[in-house]
Amino acid sequence: MPDRNRIKDLKAKIEALIIAIPRELEAYEYYMEMAERYEDESSREMFIFLAKQELSHRDVLEKILNDLERALAEATI
């Protein structure tokens, strides 16, 4: 018998991540645009560092999303 509360909880968490992941990618694109805008090396390095941080956040969120989707599939069996 599927646990409805657990399924509801998992779906809410999955939805939050689905909304959050594109934001990380947009932040990455924004920092890369900023990096291109500056000519001095220290500014460029800072924005590229920040851009990489956003990409790593996205990777973490995608991993959590995959885990949650797997958990949801198991919970609905």
Binding site: K11, A12, I14, E15, I18, I19, P22
Partner: peptide
């Protein structure tokens, strides 16, 4: 495009 056509409650 941004959300890969995923179906959620929202």
């Amino acid at each position: 495009t941004r959300f890969q056509g995923r179906r959620t409650a929202i």
